[in-house]
């Protein structure tokens, strides 16, 4: 077993222990109601992390996922009543793809630094959002609210969570069993080697950002469906949780590490820890400290021996 796989296993054991111990001390934690809550809450970070994983694998980063999420949510809600709900959702997802496409073109074809490009895009999209709608938008569509947002399968599993679960194997297959996915993985380590192996590196890099934009938009749509209200301010600093989940799962900024399974574990860990801290009424300031420390410990454990 590789060192990184061992570390993943250790993290899993720690997480399970944490869950068991919390379950023993808290009457609320292991209740169905709370677990449903946790699964709902991890969805947003989850989708963002999927996209972030792909982009980080390509050697880049995407800071613009927060505003993209907000834009998609506003569009999906705002267009309701004017067009069919499927068109509204499609429009929202298209916006995510377009933002990703612009990011990708600027990074891959104009050869600008991903951090700067997506930082700028974060500002641009956030600004555009407020121009589009300064006030909150309420969703009205029944399918959108009742099925997509609040729907449960078998009476327990929230629909957004199920969609997230379904996306995990899809992304895994994409990254491990398609030419594009393997190329993105290799580009993150050595773009020149991949270019000289006849791969269109620019197109593949762009694809990574498009995927990230798509999942950010999907996260936005499902969040709007769950909350019923969309605000232009939503999603601030969400990119940090996504980056944290990827890094906890073994991802390395600049490419060359991590796995889809690790990222998934990172998402679960962050959601569970958030929930536990809430249950024990830990003040949000302390929560932030705890989360920060967890990220530090995770990268410390994964550090390569010098």
């Amino acid at each position: 077993m590789s060192k990184s796989a061992k570390t993943n296993l250790i993290f899993c054991v720690v997480l399970v222990l944490l869950i068991v111990m919390t379950g023993l001390t808290s009457d609320v934690f292991l209740t169905e109601r709370n677990m449903v809550n946790v699964s709902r809450q991890m969805v947003t970070t989850g989708f963002l992390s999927i996209g972030m994983y792909v982009v980080i694998r390509s050697g880049g980063i995407d800071l613009s996922v927060g505003p993209t999420l907000a834009f998609a949510g506003l569009l999906a809600s705002g267009l309701q009543g004017q067009v069919h709900i499927s068109v509204a959702i499609l429009a929202a997802l298209t916006v995510g793809v377009i933002i990703g496409l612009i990011n990708g073109i600027l990074v891959a074809y104009m050869r600008l630094q991903p951090f700067i490009v997506t930082l700028a895009m974060m500002g641009v999209v956030r600004g555009a959002l407020y121009i589009y709608s300064e006030s909150p938008t309420y969703a009205s569509d029944k399918f959108f609210l009742k099925t997509l947002g609040a729907g449960k399968v078998f009476g327990v599993l929230p629909v957004p969570f199920l969609i997230f679960l379904a996306c995990i194997p899809i992304v895994w297959v994409f990254m491990n069993h398609t030419r594009a996915g393997r190329s993105i993985m290799a580009i993150g380590i050595s773009p020149e080697t991949v270019r000289l192996a006849g791969v269109n590196v620019k197109a593949k890099t762009t694809l990574a950002y498009v995927i990230c934009g798509f999942f950010a938009a999907l996260a936005g749509v499902l969040l709007a469906a769950r909350l019923g209200i969309s605000q232009p301010s939503v999603g601030a600093a969400y990119e940090l949780d996504a980056i944290a989940a990827v890094v906890i799962g073994g991802g390395i900024l600049g490419g060359g590490g991590g796995s889809v399974g690790g990222m998934f574990g990172g998402v679960i860990a962050l959601a569970v820890i958030d929930n536990i801290l809430n249950l024990f009424n830990v003040q949000s300031y302390y929560q932030q400290i705890v989360k920060g420390l967890i990220i530090l410990v995770a990268v410390l454990v994964r550090r390569k021996p010098s």
Binding site: T193, L196, G256
Partner: peptide, 9 residues
Amino acid sequence: KVDGLVLDA
């Protein structure tokens, strides 16, 4: 090492 291999793969 520069353009022949993806060293971390």
